[in-house]
Simulated scan of single mutants.
Amino acid sequence: MTVAGREGKAGRGPLRAFRRGPDGGRRRGRLLAGLGLVTAGLLALHRFVPNTPGRLGSLLESFLFWLGPFTALLLLCAAVRRARAALLVLLVPAVAWAVAFVPLLLPAPSPGARELAVVQHNVADDNTDPAGTARALADSGADLIALQELVDPALAVYRRELAPRYPYHSVRGTVGLWSRHPLGATRALDIKPGGVTEPWQRALRAEVRTPYGEVAAYVVHLPSVRLGPGGLASARRDESAALLGGVLAADPSDRIVLAGDLNGTVDDRGLAPLTSRLAAPERGLALSYPAALPLARIDQVLARGAHVPAARTLPATGSDHLPVLVRVSLHGPARP
């Protein structure tokens, strides 16, 4: 009676989850630990995940941030199950995620001297309120506004609404740049991937004469990607990014600011021709797409000869993207 009673109490104690036999808490603890190790491996070694078939590597890197919430869910399950070994193992992916993403969550530094505020926004060709979108962007107080999917008749609305505060602008195809500061030479860029036969003009370069010297500003819209049964269809985007990377490599400018809908995150290896040459924001997640439930920042502002202290999103407009406001701090002496 006494022994049985003690055993009964032990069965109701804190180790109960480990006394359920082969199908009980121990097995669930091993499963959680296994998932934790896989998650840690994906976070730390994602560059080694092959991109074929289906560009699995790029797909993983597009949503790498969300392995953090997944790890938090695993930790919660391990805590509920009182699986102490699994809790210890799950600290590994938690630390790996923290190293990669916690810096983005830290408070942004105060604005400093010699900074430009840049808004990047894909306004959407089916935007039903271009006037309201333009006014919202102008109210941001940005120095530069880069827009994609500019189509008639909405283009005339953007020109009209932005002109009072942004007297300088240039449009090439479906991309455009509005500026508070004078623009110099502007030209279209050919980054059209092979196989595209229809008219396709989605990149420009403009010289911006800022108070801190001349800046080469790029506005681009890389081809869209699609997720389907065969994986991530990003071949055209990757080809276009490689073409643009070649243009950047040949650009002699000391200072470059690139704003665009790149249809990819800065972790995505498909954008390596750009991200290997340009600095990304140091603070701020600024998840921009889709606007209704943002999962990734595919609207980017990157820079060379400068660093990018912070990025944040602005309130939703009539687009399926959120606008992104990015601070760019220019280095070096101003040009005469």
Rank of each mutant, 00 (worst) to 15 (best):
A316K: 08
P290C: 01
G231W: 05
E115I: 11
V257Q: 08
G34V: 13
R187M: 07
A96P: 10
G305K: 05
R297M: 12
R12P: 09
R84K: 10
A113T: 13
L262Q: 09
A259Q: 06
S234R: 13
Q300F: 01
R255H: 14
Q201R: 14
G305W: 03
L147D: 07
P14Y: 05
A40Y: 02
A306F: 04
R187L: 11
S110A: 15
H181W: 15
P22R: 14
L60S: 10
V324Y: 03
I298F: 00
E282F: 01
E161K: 00
R16E: 11
A291E: 04
W178P: 06
A306K: 04
H181L: 09
A142V: 12
L314A: 05
A146I: 03
A131R: 03
T197F: 10
G195K: 04
V175Q: 08
L162C: 09
A134H: 08
D139K: 13
G260V: 01
V171S: 02
G25A: 02
L314K: 08
V118G: 00
S329D: 12
P290V: 02
R226C: 00
P107I: 11
K9G: 13
S319Q: 07
A79D: 06
F48M: 00
L37E: 07
S140G: 12
H221W: 04
A4N: 14
E7R: 15
P294A: 11
G173A: 09
V266Y: 00
S240C: 02
A217K: 04
T313V: 07
L183G: 10
